[in-house]
Nucleic acid binder design. Sequence first.
DNA 1: AACTATATAGTAATTAAAACTATTTGTCAA
DNA 2: TTGACAAATAGTTTTAATTACTATATAGTT
Lengths: 151, 151
Amino acid sequence: MKNLGNKIEILYNLCRDKQLKITPQRVEVYKALLASGDHPSAETVYAKVKKNLPNISLDTVNRTLNTLSLIGAAFVVEGSGDVRRFDGNLENHQHFKCVKCKKIFDFKHNAFENIEVPEELRHKFKVLRATVYIEGLCQSCLEKENKIQSN
Amino acid sequence: MKNLGNKIEILYNLCRDKQLKITPQRVEVYKALLASGDHPSAETVYAKVKKNLPNISLDTVNRTLNTLSLIGAAFVVEGSGDVRRFDGNLENHQHFKCVKCKKIFDFKHNAFENIEVPEELRHKFKVLRATVYIEGLCQSCLEKENKIQSN
DNA sequence: AACTATATAGTAATTAAAACTATTTGTCAA
DNA sequence: TTGACAAATAGTTTTAATTACTATATAGTT
Ligand SMILES: [Mn+2]
Ligand SMILES: [Mn+2]
Ligand SMILES: [Zn+2]
Ligand SMILES: [Zn+2]
């Protein structure tokens, strides 16, 4: 994780902008999210942060992750059918999600960046994020695939 | 809802293909999903189907919606931070989701159809769905917007 | 150093979704 | 047409994610 100090500084500024207090909990949650490098759930972040802040509560982790998303320091990964996953990587990238094991794979594809949001939408709504979302089966799940069973 | 009979026939065939039984519950859940025309939750579908099958259980609705998604008669709407929403409209279209009120808006945009899935992904994974996903604030939520509060 | 609004810890409540099990039923073959 | 049986369902419980609540602590400010 390079430029960590830089990113922490950005968090500080975002908090100050929004009149939110800079608390150890917020800093540690943010650090843990960045350090994970992938798409952790609140529970996963909680486990990590506990090492530095043994008394932090899961509720605080949840609230903080929501707060980070609200101020634009992170976002909730699109997709469904699983617990909420967060992403602290704000660089333009896309996600592939396995519908079976719920694993999320990052990928970059130039053609998918700078999506032109249609006029119609830009007028009607305030667009916060536009992304290409691809789902399917990952390799290991594909191998286990056989007959679909509904029960 | 036009061509309903046609779609039911497709459901029949999908079930037969996958060796799944054609039950009144499956047919009614599917009909309710189509009739809704939008993106109902299991709970919403449950309420509808109950009118025709008063004894159906919520669990069956949940299982059936999952089954419909598995066999390709429907899909789970991308997005997060809300209960699972299902879509029975298999025509190529995109979604805008309000992050605040969770409402999902369909839209069509030619440029977003026929997304070219990168080679890399097509080789590694079995791609089932690729779509552009846009989120933000809808008009009515935008009006209520003011200072972000985290607690 | 003191003040105060904000944030947190610890816990309880809520609620979506899955699991469990006895019973029913769709499918198929006799 | 009738049985046999695997699959599906109803009714219920369990699990687990997330939010709500409230007394206490604290960051930012004066
Ligand atoms: Mn990512
Ligand atoms: Mn739709
Ligand atoms: Zn997988
Ligand atoms: Zn809204």
